[in-house]
Amino acid sequence: MSEENKNPVTEKIESTKGGHFYKEIMKDFRIKESLHGCLNCGTCVANCPAAAFYDYSPREVCQMIIEGDEETIEEYMKSKIWNCAQCYSCKYRCPKENSAADIVMAMREIAVREGLAAEALAGYTRIAKLVLTRGNQLAPDMLSPDAFPDWGPRMIELSSKKMEMREELFEGFPGMNVVDRAWAAEDYTIYEMQKIWEESGALEKVGTVFPFLVDIVQDDMEEKAEEMEAKIQEKKEKLEASKK
């Protein structure tokens, strides 16, 4: 009879502390500032808005790092850490001045880098696409009163007039007279932004989570490239001329 069969309930602890992900996390400069042992008092969990609704516990995050089990860390990086809302309530209430929020932030960066985040972030594809192709993702159109009944009947009335209201509010700012996005950035601005992402390596990082988004952005850039590069050249020449 094997050991497991004899005692099916007892969990066998085999420490695997010191694995690759654990080492990567401990390398982050934030960890030392964010973990000073843990009293297991539960103050963080009691104050945590994410813990009230999701399968997430800042206390567990601290305990997981203290224990350092590689398999558990990997599991957390794939799922649980993405439930944190980064409100930092844990940090400002913890009697040990720990910050699960900072640990989570460091772990998220590593999860992205190590290609563990794709599944957890799949739901954010739309947002990422909008940010990468438009520069912003929130729009007045998204805030439909049907989805937020607690806003009351006045919102229904206001919502039907949102275009008129924006036109009045932002007279003289044509980019603001839209309701399908927060504001309409100029093509040139978007191109410039995409160029920065590409050259800084940020786009490549996005690619580890949303590979197809890289193609979308690159297609988007290609379409505009000729016109925009000419514009950049023109600007450069103007700048040179002004220097002389």
Binding site: L39, N40, C41, G42, T43, C44, V45, A46, N47, C48, A51, A52, S57, R59, R93, P95
Partner: peptide, 25 residues
């Protein structure tokens, strides 16, 4: 679990904590 927060709801004191042994807020 350490008492974490006290609020007043409908004239009634309400406290938040984590039941750390049962693992739930």
């Amino acid at each position: 679990g350490r008492g974490a927060e006290v609020t007043l709801k409908n004239q009634q004191l309400s406290l938040r904590a984590e039941e750390t042994i049962m693992d739930r807020p």
